[in-house]
């Protein structure tokens, strides 16, 4: 007989609930349950119509099963979305127009281009504003009012105007992403570049450091935590910009195009699977920025 494992290993449930996994799983489970119930509630009227037209006898179980298996449900059930995701991601060649991987790449490429230019633009504006007094007064009102214009109102104009001068596809969408995502970067970086305390600034004066040295040895490193916070916001809204940029032209590729086509033809399952892909993509990009942040913070001696 062995006494292996006696007393030393806690029960499985205890181990799961010791970390975060248990509570998270419970919340996810609750959402799924509510979702399935919601699907029954939303889709039941149409399902009853179907039964009536077919003069079928139906019970509660038939109704529930029916509401979870419609072609064009008002609210698709989770397993229908998963099946659609499997069909369009795994079962299709990535080069196919039916592949969600293809559409995701179309959106991702303009998101990344827009994010990169937006981040650079945001940083350049912030550096200018912090160093030149008149720029703050002259630029800030424009920067702030630029964000009060609904993006849905200017996106079609941008796409049409750029289309007229021969720029189609990637660039107009990236431009809309840039327009959205430079803003949090500018605001965050202005705060970050001004974050060194007066003593740290005075110290640079006592060494009669050049403005260039003060920037690279003090302002820039001090601003990095602010930059990463801004970048997390920027990368997510950059994706929103790219998707919005795909809507007005009836673009053939991209998650926005999938959303639009899905709503034309009442393909709710397609809409939801595109939404899920977009959400997963945004989450992945935010996590990626977070990983880079952690690496940088560690290199800069941040507390573990």
């Amino acid at each position: 007989m062995t006494i292996e494992g006696q007393g030393a290993v806690p029960g499985l449930t205890a181990r799961i609930f010791a970390g975060h996994a248990g509570p998270i799983a419970v919340v996810v489970l609750a959402i799924v349950v509510i979702w399935y119930a919601g699907a029954v509630y939303m889709n039941a009227p149409r399902q009853m119509d179907v039964f009536k037209r077919a003069n079928a006898d139906w019970g509660a179980v038939d109704l529930i099963e029916g509401t979870w298996a419609q072609d064009r449900p008002i609210l698709p059930a989770p397993h229908q979305i998963l099946a659609e995701l499997k069909k369009t991601i795994i079962d299709q060649k990535v080069t196919s127009k039916r592949s969600l991987v293809f559409h995701t790449w179309v959106t991702l490429s303009s998101t990344l281009l827009g994010f990169a230019t937006g981040a650079v633009l945001g940083i350049v504006l912030a550096v200018g504003i912090v160093h030149v007094g008149t720029l703050e007064k002259s630029l800030m009102p424009w920067i702030i009012s630029s964000q009060t214009i609904p993006i849905l109102a200017i996106a079609p104009m941008v796409v049409v105007v750029l289309g007229a001068i021969g720029l189609k596809g990637l660039v107009p969408k990236a431009l809309i992403s840039t327009y959205l995502c430079f803003f949090p970067v500018t605001i965050g970086m202005v705060k970050g570049l001004r974050s060194p305390d007066p003593l740290q600034m005075d110290l640079m004066s006592t060494y009669s450091a050049s403005p260039w040295q003060t920037f690279w040895k003090l302002r820039w490193p001090a601003s990095l935590p602010f930059l990463f916070t801004s970048l997390k916001v920027a990368v997510a809204i950059s994706l929103v910009g790219a998707i919005v940029g795909e809507l007005p032209t009836g673009a053939q590729g991209g998650l926005g195009a999938r959303l639009l086509a899905g709503s034309y033809y009442g393909q709710t399952i397609q809409i939801w699977s595109a939404l899920f892909t977009a959400a997963a993509l945004a989450a992945a990009m935010v996590v990626l920025v977070g990983v880079v942040e952690r690496v940088v913070v560690r290199a800069m001696g941040g507390r573990p």
């Binding site: 305390d197 003593l199 005075d202 490193p221 800069m300 001696g301």
Partner: peptide, 10 residues
């Protein structure tokens, strides 16, 4: 200075 004013990333 009154405070050390060390740069925390160095």
């Amino acid at each position: 200075f009154q405070a050390p004013a060390l740069y925390p990333w160095r």
